[in-house]
Amino acid sequence: MNNSYLSLRDNAKKNEVILLAHGSGGKLSHDLVKKKLLPFLANPALNKLDDSAVFEASGRLAFTTDSYVVNPIFFPGGDIGKLAVCGTVNDLAMSGAKPMYLSLSIIAEEGLPMGELEQIIQSIKRAAEEAEVQIITGDTKVVNQGQTDKLFVNTAGIGLIPPGIDISGANAKAGDKVILSGTIGDHGIAIMSQREGLKFSVPVESDCAPLNKLVAQMLVASPRIHCLRDPTRGGLATTLNEFARQSHVGIVIEENKIPVKDGVRAACELLGLDPIYVANEGKLVAIVEPDDADKILAPMKQNGYGRDAAIIGEVISEHPGRVIMKTKLGSSRIVDMLSGELLPRIC
């Protein structure tokens, strides 16, 4: 074997791409699962490769699913794999559940570089390890070029809700405090800065993170958290409006108390966006009894994902269904749900 042969072989490996046959169910499909997926995601239930994963469970279960089509699939602070694990873990955690098992379904575009898929799988492994969840069942499909945009991922998740927990968007009561776990808009701005045709660089990374341990610590501090939600698409404003409408209460927040990173503020100024409408992937909003607020805030600030947590407002009985913001100037205005699309301004 001479050097030129070796470099040829390395090149072929480097240039390896996903083929339609990788999703055909035949030998290449089998190899893909055995060589690229199992070594990273192995656990007893998955290793069996039976038609369905079988596990024991008892108690109140939470079940959720989400599809991820983010573009680009790699972005500052994460990638579609990390997002797919954290998103589903967080949806479970927001019901107060301890996430246990995930499914992972991948739809890849023919021609996707194998190296990119491997990076995504490794990222899924790291995120699952951090969140202490197991991926116990999955599926891979390959579609013709142009039928998907590189890679779509779906995850579903099952979690166990400890006894005594009752969290719902309909539980907010007048007098409750509103807690936000940290800076807003990081994910949306990180993604937008990468979009084709929008060439600016901001020192902002996506906040994409699993929040289940943060939620567990909050529930230890007080098991009677009323509402919990992660403000993803539509941002903080949309989540608060959902709470106000579901619970038939008003919510007042103070603009000055909402933490926003300088990079996000700068990008929002430039693009004409309001950070309260920009997406997050590692933040939560909690509505809690007034007496519990400080008790819950303390452990949050100890957790890396809640370092900048703050009480940003309270629930009132007036203006049911409405969110009102006291602006920096001392005026008040209604904060509505996001309407239309977030588009940068043109002049």
Partner: peptide, 9 residues
């Protein structure tokens, strides 16, 4: 003007 509630002020 609307975002900062200036008309109220």
């Amino acid at each position: 003007i609307m975002r900062y509630g200036i008309r109220q002020l």
